[in-house]
Computed example of a mutant assay.
Amino acid sequence: MVIRSIAAWMGVAIVAMAIAPGADAAQEILRRDSERRVRCESNGDEVTRCAVDTRRGVRMLRQLSEKACTEGKTWGVGVDQDSIWVSQGCRAEFLTGFGGSGVSSGYAERVVRCESRGGRWNQCAFETAGGMELVRQLSKNPCIRGQNWGWDRSGVWVSGGCRAEFRTVAAGGDENDDRPRLRIVRCESKDARPQQCQVNTGGSVKLRRQLSKAPCIEGKSWGYDRGGIWVERGCRGDFEIGGGG
């Protein structure tokens, strides 16, 4: 009886020793997954960057917003692989170090918002070594490079009521490449009055997002030429320039 009891006790101990490491390993995996989870949220149309090491990849774990979270359009990885960005109302949980994107992607990799309030000159500190481009105009006043916005070594500057989002031009880009770059311009017809938004369209514009209840119909309530975009009859929208007509 004593021998059987000892044998039974040893069997239980061996089983316990076999199970314990597995349980600890599972807890360790759960702990690591918890540490790798990052919640990143964009409120409204703003671009939000969440600092996190993304060198070992990122994948979206769970979408929290009604607005779609689409990789390369409304979320992606920062150009230095040190952050996740979200835009256009995307809110989600992401898991790092678990495959998926490991390189930068999308429109908002290196974006800064700079605003001239009350028409005053303003400079926004930012890395501008690769040059800058305007990606989305936020103000009613047109933002024209060299007139009311530009950049130097210290950052981006704006004046004359220009408010916009700017992006660094990718390093290694061809300075002689004169193809139109993607930009977003907001143009609004208030109280159904005609409005002209001065911007170099490069001959290519399409409606990206309608903001008004009144329909925006090309040729009827909005249109464009090389000098700018026009809207009327209450059309308000964000227009994409350089993305193909």
Rank of each mutant, 00 (worst) to 15 (best):
W9F: 11
M10C: 05
M17Y: 12
G22R: 15
D24Q: 13
L30N: 13
R31C: 11
D33K: 15
V38R: 02
V38H: 04
C40W: 05
C40P: 09
E41R: 04
S42F: 12
N43I: 15
D45S: 13
C50N: 14
T54R: 05
R55K: 07
G57E: 02
L61Y: 11
Q63K: 07
L64D: 01
L64H: 07
E66P: 02
K67W: 10
C69S: 11
V77G: 00
I84C: 02
I84H: 04
V86Y: 04
G89S: 07
T96S: 12
G100I: 08
V103N: 13
S104T: 08
G106H: 09
V112A: 10
R117V: 05
R117K: 14
Q123M: 00
E127V: 07
E127Q: 06
G130D: 02
L134Q: 02
L134C: 00
R136P: 00
Q137C: 12
K140Y: 11
N141P: 04
Q147W: 05
W151K: 00
W151A: 09
W157G: 10
C162L: 10
R167C: 04
G173C: 10
L182A: 11
R183W: 03
I184Y: 02
R186S: 14
R186N: 00
K190S: 03
D191K: 14
D191G: 12
P194E: 04
Q196S: 05
N200V: 15
R209G: 00
A214Y: 01
P215M: 05
W222A: 04
Y224E: 10
D225M: 03
D225V: 03
I229Q: 02
W230Y: 12
G234M: 06
C235P: 08
I241C: 03
